[in-house]
Design a protein around this nucleic acid. Sequence first.
RNA 1: GCGGAUGUGGUGAAAUUGGUAGACACGCCAGACUUAGGAUCUGGUGCCGAGAGGUAUGCGGGUUCGAGUCCCUCCAUCCGCACCA
Length: 677
Amino acid sequence: MRIKAYAERLLEGLERIDWSDSIKEQQRNWIGKSQGASVTFAIENSTESIEVFTTRPDTIFGVSFMVLAPEHPLVNQLVSPACKEAVENYQREAGLKSERDRQADVKNITGQALGAYAIHPFTGERIPIWIGDYVLASYGTGAVMAVPCGDQRDYDFAKYFDLEIKNIFADVDISEQAYTEKDARISHSDFLDGLDAKTAMKKAIEAIEAKGIGKGKTNFRLRDAVFSRQRYWGEPFPVSYTNEIPSLISDELLPIELPEVDKYLPTEDGEPPLARANKKAWNHFQGDRMEYNTMPGWAGSSWYFLRYMDPKNEQEFVSKEKVDYWQNVDLYIGGSEHATGHLLYSRFWTKFLYDQGYIPFDEPFAKLINQGMILGKSAIAYLDSEGKMHSFDLIANDVTNFREVRILIDLIQDDESINLEELRKWQPQFEDMQFITNEHGKITVKREVDKMSKRWYNVVTPDDLCDKYGADTLRMYEMFLGPLEQSKPWDTKGITGVHGFLKKYWRLFHQNEQFVVSEGEASKEAMKYLHKTIKRLRDDLDRFSFNTGVSSFMICVNELTDQKCNNREVLTQLTILMAPYAPHITEEIWSKLHSDNTSVFDQTYPVFEEQYLKESDFEYPVSFNGKMRFKVSLSVELSAKEIENHILGLPETQKYLEGKTPKKIVIVPGRIVNFVS
RNA sequence: GCGGAUGUGGUGAAAUUGGUAGACACGCCAGACUUAGGAUCUGGUGCCGAGAGGUAUGCGGGUUCGAGUCCCUCCAUCCGCACCA
């Protein structure tokens, strides 16, 4: 999949979508755009040449050697007879290491001279060519022009192998390390002398292009992706082979379904699992054999949302009409772990389909919210070298000589100690374990927050809570925990608060276990709180602030309880308002409010009306030098001058002014009063 | 190393455009009703202080009548990428 061809547009599109900075930045990093130039270096006594990519063409006069990746295709041709053996040894060693290992082992500088020389395009100087595994075959051209004065890795390499380090920066000391800033003037560089980096870069590229040895170029870190997997679970390709020549299965036979196999494992001779299927196992078999590879996970995830618009369409993945109507996804809620996988591929596919004219948009998800993960609290116990378990509180300041072992969190009691009886039964290794207990005879554990995972024994399931408190309580508690985007450890300590709230809501409708609501007009106060709540919830919902939404309901129910309000109209509106948050209890209440078999979910959602909130007075906080001292309730009708006069006349004001005349009086009607002295 | 995010009570957190810091809960304290409470209700609860008051949003500075919020420096924690030329 040539995702690289879309690199520039995948970057540009980020400007137009409402995603978090962190995800956008992750995608930018992953795409890894760098601008510079490609330069071709001729090779002494050879018709071959080496192309390099550099982001610092301005430093071309600082080149004192070149480094190729050990796998570079020219290495074998260029190596001198004298260096041949050493080079081959080096290549073999580098080949043994995986790319990951090579990248992990950064500090270890290795390399080998080829005994060949390139020619500097401007100075004509001989430049020794080396190989080194700090140069990656898969990035750029797999070769670099080394400028030790301006690049720390080149500098380290040069120091280690005692290669020349030219200083081409004016007034910069490079005796200890390379100078990687771009703010020095260029020197010892012929036509670039005296220029700043930016100008020099432009001029260097012009010179390189004029000489016909290269051009300005943009490089991307992003790599093209293989679109096949040697796994069972994945969409099968509609492809068959005759004499190993592939051909497409015709449309009317689609879809090709996964065939049954005896095992989901590769065959003995290394073919993918689908090779296990016999002819009859395929719903349509053609040619000598079917394609054995399946598609990767992101094949379907990249565009499934389009299919949702038109799931029964047998002719197209989505009809023009439907996709024109629905357009792209307005809001996508998903985990940030998909930042450089699904979320990038999906953008790529969408752009491709847009280019092909199938869909009218080129970004799949207009707004993205990353919900935080609910984390688990692992319990860690400590074993000494003899296998005895020590209470954590005894050894907390030094655990270096202990081995950590994770304990099933169900065995941890409220005081952070292990239920030892249960522990012995849990796993055989603990059956005869000896314990070094604390003064209470207990073994405490250390708690650590991790992703929930079976291997950490820190998984909690919501089932018990659901049994105990009901689904509504659990649902609202999850919302109440904190901001949607924030990760947090699962902690059920506060769940009784939400449960109590729902009971309090229930009690608004009941007296002595009888359902009682009053008819007639609601009080002004009750309507005010109802509409305050409607407004708050509307704003909270706009911000996806579910935690404050739940608290808005609590405030409202507390207030209505205090007012002893059981007015039918007010409680009906509140119930509709709360239905999305606590669907079960509100539907139950609804059925008590209405005997006509309607559902609370079919009702019109309450709309905020300003008129109920009109206040005649505002309680002004009166501050002196920014410190709030007292409050005074005044009509909202008053002008700033009238407020000032009234407040100046108050005895408290005179007390805090201590007889002085204030330098300045700041009055913001409807907000604050501040005296500056 | 580069980039992103987050730092507020004992705890989870709130404060939407700079305008009463700590809403709403948990926990804790005191009380009521109870044989009992993991039920319900009332009051209190940032810290220091008997009080008046002082002080407080990671540290330090700045802008402002006024800063959790804006600007600068630093620190800590978490996450992503990392020999990318």
